[in-house]
Every structure is written in structure tokens, then in C-alpha cells.
Design a protein around this nucleic acid. Structure first.
Length: 645
DNA sequence: GCGTGTTTACGCGTCT
DNA sequence: AGACGCGTAAACACGC
């Protein structure tokens, strides 16, 4: 598999299949509507399209597809991955003559499905695209929460208005292919995800916009830890994943300047990286936030708009055990990571894979429930990742104090690190210790940050200006080329996360803090440019704090990121770090694993918008860095191991 | 009026 | 038997 993935990483042919994959062939177990052939409900991979062969096979009679599948087919047949209701009708009629002659009841069912099924998102039309009805797209990150799927938009006249949330959300969209999380702010209103404001314009827009926003909401959802791939009950899947029933209805998509598969690569890689970023973020800054109250964010109560917050503290057992979709990430991560990262961590245990493969037909497997797909996926990956779910420092204690919770999660995870004695988790709740079992962690070292002048020089040539703190990096830090690729980046994040940043004066890095905070607020839903910026900023950060080894070798060009302490005006020119990075760091500054990230004309406000400010903030006061490594035994692995495995 | 969208209710088949 | 997924019908509201 590893080799397969390695090769496929080049070809990227696998991406369309990974993306949002959750095709569950339930046909053999339920929903049989006829002998042989595909069954209704058999396929609900949002990324699938309908094979012409399939079409031909069901020219006569009612197609053996569920309405949800039909809708999925239709939408996916659209280059924009969205369709109006009438277009969906038309597509179905075009491809399934049965419905031409059928009454109109099926249309009602289509509408019913669209409304009811969380997989489908209503995308408001943009102002420049007037017309009747909204677009419908497939939610790449449907929230399958026990919470109401959406607010009742209008009280029905009559008595039923008193039951605003009568929908059985668990029964809704169970066939959705959950790809993760994030969908921030969508627990109650999924439409918001496809806000045309974010989306750019729904209609005629640039190909780039289309490719990036139609389905992915124009962002790289880092929060969806590998979840983009959705899950696939491989074990029960009657057909190999590599043989999606789908197939390529040949929609030439010339308007895509970036191939669809590239977009998906972007997703899969970045999402796979999300936990690492998040972990790093939490490791580095949360303590600082809590101590200094800077920006007030992570210490603030969960933002109501932050969906993930809704899942931060699921009821111990019920919420965990009742979410049938969250197991996706096991497979997801195993696919995405491909085991390429040369970590000493043991490979994913079979049980974990089996976990995702178990997918019970009814989605009752604890790991399959979507509502906590993000949450539980991480739980299932590694118990120590609980911290990643928390935005509030005080919540870490929760994650670290209850062996029972770990035990509970252990039901979903076979990760070897689960065997870390619980005492380790509870030893340093207040420190937000980043425990790690990774062998690369070594003795703690301390260092003093050099003078600002040195920093300036270092900025110009990081590799030639070893900092005292870089002594640390000499033994345990990152190589200068810490993010030449995705795996390296993840590993770097992991290593960096293992430091005890609590002792580090992070005040010089307000900009980075803010960047990461914004990323956190956005559920790590970042655009490529923002990813690049973040990488750049982190690179600077690493350099400043000595995490990056002062090696001259493959040292990436000095980032012009927000961490730049001495050239605050440098980015004012473009306001887009990535653009500058692209110019100066052609090979390294782009998001790892994303080879052709196109230059973005505009970066989202999430990250880049802060950079100018950050540049001002990143002036580093002299000599105030002290880093102390946590004792190896106390290191909690907060890295998303499964994202690698 | 019609299309669209939401919601409720119910029946059926399957699975546990 | 109950839960579940799915299909179907229908009521209702909204906007063009």
C-alpha cells in the first residue's frame, strides 16, 4: 500500500477516490431493490459519478440507486459540483429514462432528500447569477451531529412549531459521506458553508475559484484531519475501493485550471496535516495564551460559531458510542499517510483498520458516526490528541485526567501509545505538556535567544547564524529544511510540539500567534496561500526559537513570512506572503504536497490579513528565549500519528 | 401559479 | 420487536 501510495502521490490518480470517499456498499446488506446490480443506497460516495455503463444497464426500469445517490451522481457530473434543483431533475431524466415517465413524486423525493440529507448543501446563488432556486452541492464536511441539523427556518404553522428539532438527526444523512469536520458553523446552518460571499460567486467565476470553492468551500480545511477521504467500510465493501462504481461520466472540465485531483490532493494532504498544525499551535501558544491572556482567544469560551466546540465535550459514552461515522479517519489516515513518514511509531494496528472497516450497515458503529467525525477521529487516532479538540486551556485537564476517558477512547483506538500510563497524562495538566513517545525527543536544552541584530542576520541567512537555542535543535530540533514535503512538515510539527513551549517567551510572535489563532478559529480551514503563510511563519518561528537546525544544506530560503522581525514592510507590498514566498521560495514555501498551487490573487483574511500586522509584531526582543524540553517520559504525543500511519 | 425548499408522517424492507 | 434506511406523500411557506 505504501508503495502504491507513493507512486500514486505522483500520479495522484487516487485522489478523486480518496476525496470524501465513503462509498459504502450497503447494498448487500440492505436496501435491496432487486437482484443483482447496484443497489439503492449502495453508493454514496459524494465524489462518485455515474458510469455510462451503469446508465445503460438501467435504462429500463427504476434505477437501483437511492435518490441520494442520484443526486450525488448528478451533482458530481457537474464541473462545478453543484446543480440547481432543476438541473438535477434534468440530469436524472437524461440519464434515467424511467424518471421521464415517472410522475412527479420522485421530484418531491429529490427535494426531500436534498433538504433532509446533510450531504447536500444548498448554495445560494450569487448576485450575479440570478435564477430560481439555489445550487445544491455535496457537503464535503457534513456535520452529523446529534444536534439539530439546522435551525428550523420557519415555524410551521400549527402545533408542530413547538417541536423545532424533531428531526432525527441520527437518521439523517447517515449515508452521507462524511469527510470530516469542519464545516464550521454548519451545525445549525449548513448553507452557511457555501456562503457565496466566501464562495466567491457561484456562477461564472474564475476557474480557480471554481476549483477551489465549489466543493471545498475555497479553503483547505485543515481541521478535517484526513477526513476528507471520508471513510469507507472497506471490509464490507463488496467492491474494491479502486473500483468505484462510478465512473467517469466524462465531464471534460476545461475550465479547471487546476485539475480536480490537484484540488483534492490539496485537501487530503493539508487535512492530513491539520492535526499536526493544531497540535503545534496548541503546544506552542495555548499555554502562552492562557498565561498572558493574549488575544484572549483560546481561553475564551468556545465560539458558538465554531462547530468543533460543540463536540468538545461529548457525553462520555453516549456521544462517543453513537456516532457511526467517525471511524473514517482510520482508513483515511492510513491512506493519506501511506506510512511514508519515517517515524518509529509502530504502524497502525490491524484492529484500527478493522475498526473502520467494520462499518456496520446501520452506521451504528461508534466510530462511524459523523457528528464527531472530527472529534472522534482524533480520539480514535490517538488518545493524547484530545488536547487538539480543546480550545480552552482548561480543557486540557479534562483530556489528561480521566483514565476512564482514555479507556473509553481506547475502544476506538488501538494506537500503541494508548498504553502510555495514564499517569503521564495527568502529571502535567496545567502545563499542557506535549507528551510524546517519539524517540527523536531528547534531553532538554536551554538557550538564549541572540540579539536582535543576530536575528536580523539570521533572517538573512538562518543557516549561517546558529542561535544558542539552536543547540537544542542540534540534538532534537528540526533540520533546516523542515518542511520540504508534507511528511517532513508533519514530523516537524510533531517535534516542535514536543517542546515545552510553556517556558518560552512567545511574546515576540504575536503575529504567528494571531495567525494560528485565526486558523484555529477557522477550524484550520485555510486557503493554500494561508497554508503557505503559516508554513512560512512557522518556519520563521522555528528559526527564531532554534528549532530549525542551523544547517546550511537544504535550507529553504529565508521565509518572508510574518515572523520576519526586521523587514516589516516587506510584505506590505503584496500583502500576500505566499506570493512572495512563491517568488522567492519556489520549491519550498508552498504547502507541502501541493505542487501546483496557483498564485492566488487574494488570500483569505484568515491568515494573510494578519501578516502585515504580524510583521510589525514579530520584532523579537533580544534574548528571551528559553526552551526546556519536557522529560521524555512526560511527553505526551499530541501528534496526529494516524495521519501518518 | 409554479418552482423551490422544509418538514412531517407513514409504510416497507432489512438488520440486529 | 425495534431500529434503521429509504421511499413516498403531503402540507406549508417562500419567491419569482
Amino acid at each position: 500500500m505504501t508503495s502504491e501510495l507513493e507512486s500514486s502521490l505522483t500520479s495522484m490518480d487516487w485522489l478523486p477516490q480518496l476525496t470524501m470517499r465513503a462509498a459504502i456498499q450497503k447494498a448487500d446488506t440492505q436496501g435491496t431493490h432487486g437482484p443483482g446490480g447496484p443497489k439503492k443506497g449502495a453508493l454514496l460516495d459524494p465524489s462518485t459519478t455515474l458510469d455510462q455503463e451503469e446508465v445503460q444497464q438501467h435504462k429500463d426500469g427504476k434505477p437501483p440507486y437511492s435518490y441520494a445517490s442520484l443526486i450525488t451522481f448528478a451533482i458530481n457530473s457537474s464541473p462545478k459540483k453543484k446543480m440547481t434543483l432543476s438541473e438535477i431533475y434534468q440530469w436524472i431524466c437524461d440519464n434515467f429514462p424511467y424518471y421521464r415517465e415517472a410522475g412527479s413524486g420522485w421530484k418531491n423525493s429529490i427535494r426531500h432528500n436534498l433538504s433532509l440529507n446533510k450531504c447536500f448543501l444548498k448554495v445560494p446563488r450569487s448576485k450575479d447569477d440570478p435564477g430560481k432556486g439555489s445550487y445544491w452541492a455535496i457537503d464535503t464536511n457534513p456535520k452529523e451531529d446529534a444536534l439539530p441539523t439546522r435551525p428550523k427556518k420557519r415555524p410551521r404553522s400549527g402545533e408542530r412549531a413547538s417541536t423545532p428539532y424533531s428531526l432525527d438527526s441520527e437518521s439523517l444523512g447517515m449515508d452521507c459521506i462524511i469527510s470530516g469536520s469542519a464545516s464550521i458553523n454548519t451545525v445549525t446552518n449548513k448553507v452557511a458553508l457555501y456562503n457565496t460571499e466566501q464562495d466567491g460567486s457561484d456562477s461564472p467565476r474564475s476557474s480557480l475559484n471554481n476549483s477551489l470553492s465549489d466543493q471545498s468551500l475555497a479553503s483547505v480545511n485543515l481541521n478535517s484531519v484526513g477526513s476528507v477521504h471520508g471513510y469507507s467500510s472497506v471490509g464490507s465493501h463488496p467492491e474494491p475501493v479502486s473500483q468505484p462504481m462510478s465512473l467517469q461520466q466524462p465531464p471534460p472540465q476545461p475550465q479547471y485550471s487546476m485539475p480536480e485531483r490537484d484540488k483534492q490532493l490539496l485537501f487530503s494532504d493539508f487535512e492530513d496535516l491539520s492535526a499536526s498544525f493544531r497540535s503545534l499551535y496548541k503546544s506552542v501558544f495555548e499555554q502562552s495564551f492562557s498565561q498572558q491572556g493574549l488575544m484572549g482567544m483560546p481561553s475564551e469560551p468556545p465560539q458558538p460559531t465554531h462547530t468543533s466546540c460543540s463536540y468538545q465535550h461529548p457525553p462520555p459514552s453516549s456521544s462517543i458510542s453513537s456516532h457511526p461515522h467517525s471511524g473514517q479517519n482510520s482508513l483515511t489516515n492510513s491512506i493519506a499517510g501511506g506510512g511514508q513518514v519515517p517515524l518509529s511509531h509502530p504502524p497502525q494496528l490491524p484492529a484500527q483498520n478493522a475498526h473502520s472497516a467494520h462499518g456496520s450497515p446501520h452506521g451504528q458503529h461508534p466510530s462511524q458516526h459523523a457528528p464527531h467525525s472530527q472529534h472522534l477521529s482524533q480520539h480514535s487516532q490517538h488518545p493524547s490528541q484530545h488536547a487538539q479538540h480543546s480550545q480552552h486551556p482548561s480543557q486540557h485537564a479534562q483530556h489528561s485526567q480521566h483514565p476512564s476517558q482514555h479507556a473509553q477512547h481506547s475502544q476506538h483506538s488501538q494506537h500503541p501509545s494508548q498504553h502510555v500510563p495514564h499517569s503521564q497524562h495527568s502529571q502535567h495538566p496545567s502545563q499542557h505538556a506535549q507528551h510524546s513517545q517519539h524517540p527523536s525527543q531528547h534531553a532538554q536544552q536551554q538557550g538564549q535567544h541572540p540579539s536582535q541584530q543576530q536575528q536580523q542576520q539570521q533572517h538573512q541567512s538562518l543557516s549561517h547564524q546558529p542561535l544558542p537555542t539552536q543547540q537544542l535543535s542540534c540534538s532534537t530540533g528540526l533540520p533546516a529544511d523542515w518542511y520540504p514535503n508534507l511528511d517532513a512538515l508533519k514530523e516537524s510539527c510533531r517535534i516542535a510540539s514536543s517542546y515545552n513551549w510553556a517556558d518560552v517567551d512567545l511574546s515576540p510572535f504575536q503575529g504567528l500567534k494571531e495567525s494560528m489563532r485565526q486558523a484555529e478559529l477557522n477550524n484550520w480551514s485555510l486557503e493554500p496561500t494561508q497554508i503557505a503563510d503559516l508554513c512560512s511563519s512557522i518556519n520563521q518561528f522555528f528559526a527564531r526559537t532554534g528549532v530549525i537546525q542551523p544547517q546550511g544544506a537544504v535550507q529553504p530560503p529565508v521565509c518572508h513570512g510574518s515572523m520576519h522581525p526586521n523587514k516589516p514592510g516587506q510584505h506590505i507590498n503584496t500583502g500576500n506572503m505566499y506570493m512572495e514566498s512563491r517568488q522567492n521560495l519556489p520549491a519550498l514555501m508552498g504547502p507541502p504536497g501541493y505542487p501546483h498551487m496557483p498564485p492566488m490573487s487574494s488570500a483569505g483574511p484568515t491568515m494573510t490579513g494578519h501578516h502585515t500586522q504580524m510583521n510589525q509584531q514579530h520584532l523579537i526582543p533580544p534574548g528571551n528565549f528559553q526552551m526546556r524540553r519536557m522529560p521524555a517520559d512526560d511527553i505526551q504525543d499530541d501528534f496526529d500519528w494516524d495521519s501518518i500511519v
